[in-house]
Every structure is written in structure tokens, then in C-alpha cells.
Amino acid sequence: MDTPVLRADTLNKTLVMNQGADSGPNGPLTILKQVSLTVPPAGSLAITGASGSGKSTLLGLLAGLDEPSSGSVELFGESLSGKTEDQRAALRLGRVGFVFQSFHLLEHLTALENVMLPLELAPHPASDLRARAEQALVEVGLKQRLHQPVVRLSGGEQQRVALARAFVIRPGLLFADEPTGNLDRATGHEVVERLFALQHDYQTSLVLVTHDETLAARCEHWYRLVDGRLEAVQP
């Protein structure tokens, strides 16, 4: 069997709200309990849950944006435990893509420049990065919008730019955090179709956090976060 792209083992995350209190309303708050999961290469996994159930916290731990209270995460076969923030960042560089609920495009840049950004982050940027970024935007149907400042694009178009930005590096792993959360139904549907198409084309592993159970059902694995624990759901 291939090495999993992502593996989490008995993750716990506890927040200390008020130092000195061991229990009660001001005591430590356990958000995640004994969470374990595995994402195989080119596999897809959805995490659903109510608001405040800890979905984003889990995504942050899986991506190495935050550290667990206990347990371990392996990204591309490398453990994140004991690594500094910068070492964890180096592990993501060029291999991990993100799609955020609020798009988080850089407002002062054009669509093309936003997509070129992850390519430029590489230590030795390739010479054809502009062509690759253009191609990525063509693939999400924004050929006519390359040089538009992103603030002039509609919500759906902005999220498509975000998709192009995520896939332009041909990531081994893509984290999508409520990718349709800020979009209307029709636009959301279009974005999701493109997301799965790209994931399939590039054989990217996908970790998808969403409210939308229809969307979750399209993934190979589906977990629901209830009371800090993961429960497998049969798609």
C-alpha cells in the first residue's frame, strides 16, 4: 500500500481558557478527542459538523498551521511533531493547496498575479510560471478575466481564482475549508464541480471541511465531528 499523504493519530486539542481553573466554566476546554484519520494518495475525505464543533481547528492541525495538545500528524510521511512553525511551513511549500471560505485573495493583485503567487514562493521559481498560471485560470473558465483586479470579480469568480491558485502547484494535498460557504447555490455547485474535476485530473488528495452533507457525500470518506470525536459516516 502507498504511504498515506496525511495521517493523524489520536489527536487531542485542549484550550486553557483561564489559567488556574481545572474544571468548571473557566476550566480547560477539550475541542478534539482522540481523532485519528488517514488520507491515501488521490483520496478524498470530508469532515462535517455543527458550527463550533472544531472542524476548522482539526483542519488547522492537519495542515500544520497549529499544534495538537497530544497525538501526532504525518504529512507526506513526515511527522510534524517537534517541528518549528517554519519547518512545518517548509513541508507545505509547493505541495499543499488551500481553498478558504472567504477566498482570501490578495486584493491589490490581478487574478493572474494571485495565481502566480504560490509558484513564486518556490526557492527557485520556474521560468514558465506565468504560462502555468494562465493555464490554471483557463481551466477554471476565467480566460477573459486574467488581468482583472480580483476585487472587481464576483464571489463565484473569486472562488474560481482561489481554486486555480490552489491547483496551480499541482498539490499532493488540498485543504478546502467551506469552499461554498460564501456562495449561492448555483455558483457553489459550479465551483464544487470544478474542484472535484481538478482533484481527479491532478490526482490530488482532498480534505474537505463543510456544512453541506451533499457535498461531503461526494468524497470517498466522510467523518462527522460530534462532541470532539470523529464518527465515520457511510457516504
Binding site: A89, R92, L93, R95, F98, P118, L121
Partner: peptide
């Protein structure tokens, strides 16, 4: 601030 948060998520280091 948001730009830097995005760049860090993509793997940019502090230095």
C-alpha cells in the same frame, strides 16, 4: 496581515 496568513498557509517562512 491577511496576506501574510495566506502566504504562511502556503508554506512561506518567517525570515
Amino acid at each position: 496581515t491577511p496576506t501574510v496568513a495566506v502566504l504562511k498557509a502556503f508554506g512561506l517562512q518567517r525570515r
